[in-house]
Computed example of a mutant assay.
Amino acid sequence: MIKLFRRIRQNLLSEGKTGQYLKYAIGEIVLVVIGILIALGINNWNERNKLNQSIVEHLEILKKDLNEDQIQLRELKNSLTERKQAADSALFQMMTIRPTDIQLKKYLIMLYQEFKFSPNTNAIETINQSNEIPALNNELRTVVLDYYALIERTKEREHISNTQIQTKYEPYLNEHYPVIFQKNNQWGFISEYYKKDPRPVSMIDAEKFLKDKTLETLLVSRYYQCSSLETFYEELITASDKILNMIEK
């Protein structure tokens, strides 16, 4: 094809047909440009097709990650609800709405538990590394980014809550209420661990407990932290549901 074009140009020049030569040269340039544009269009189409296929595959992984996240989040939320109820029950006893009883030891030890959500990040890391976030439609991109931003805020709240346990609640209980570590504590691990302990058990000193304002503030703080984290986990479940529904659509 190139040889044919060259021969035509040479014939036109040798015959002195300069005007026709110029017209032909312009036409040839136009054809070359059109050919380049067609090739670029095909290449862009192929690249876009590859990108779309990659996004579809990665969104399937994201669905799997989010479903696993939801299982973990629901377990954490249910556990938090139990801890919030334990704090509430202990405070009810402190306010003498209910008399102190054997369950108090269980309520106090339950509030030692720390919480940490560990999200699955395989899909979002791959999507980021592949620079596919800008290729998602606007609404989906927004909810995905919002979900992972919410995870970061949840981690901050977990850190605050766990630090409060480590530096205030747990040290105070260990020092002032060591009697919670006995076999008559009905919480699973403690009950099982001390079940063969032959030593006599004792109850929490009710008078001391009812007057303990420091413990009261710690219990209120634990209730608040549990309630706040519970809200964060619920928001993450709602946000992940929204992403899953959009991916399905």
Rank of each mutant, 00 (worst) to 15 (best):
Q93G: 02
I71L: 04
A90F: 11
N120Y: 11
T81G: 15
E125S: 15
I127E: 00
L76H: 08
G27K: 04
R48C: 01
R74Q: 03
L108V: 14
G16V: 04
K77H: 09
Q103M: 13
F92H: 11
L40K: 02
N43I: 15
N67M: 05
I124P: 08
I29D: 00
Y21P: 02
K116Y: 08
T121H: 04
H58D: 00
I29R: 07
L51G: 10
G19S: 12
E28L: 12
M94Y: 06
D65V: 13
L51H: 09
K105T: 14
S14F: 02
I26Q: 01
K106A: 07
K84Y: 09
N46M: 03
L104Q: 04
L37P: 01
A90Q: 07
L31N: 01
I97H: 10
D69S: 06
L37F: 15
E114Q: 12
S89R: 10
F117G: 07
I38D: 00
D88E: 09
D65E: 03
M95P: 01
L40Y: 08
N46E: 00
K64L: 02
N43P: 03
V30Y: 01
G16A: 01
K77T: 06
Q103R: 15
I133R: 10
E47K: 14
S89N: 10
G35Q: 03
D88Y: 12
Y107F: 14
L104R: 06
Q53M: 08
Q103A: 15
Q103P: 08
D65M: 12
P99E: 02
Y24G: 11
E68Q: 12
I42Y: 02
V33I: 12
K105H: 13
G19I: 14
I8Q: 05
A90C: 13
I71P: 03
N120I: 09
T81K: 15
L22R: 10
I97R: 09
F115G: 01
E125D: 13
R74N: 02
N67S: 08
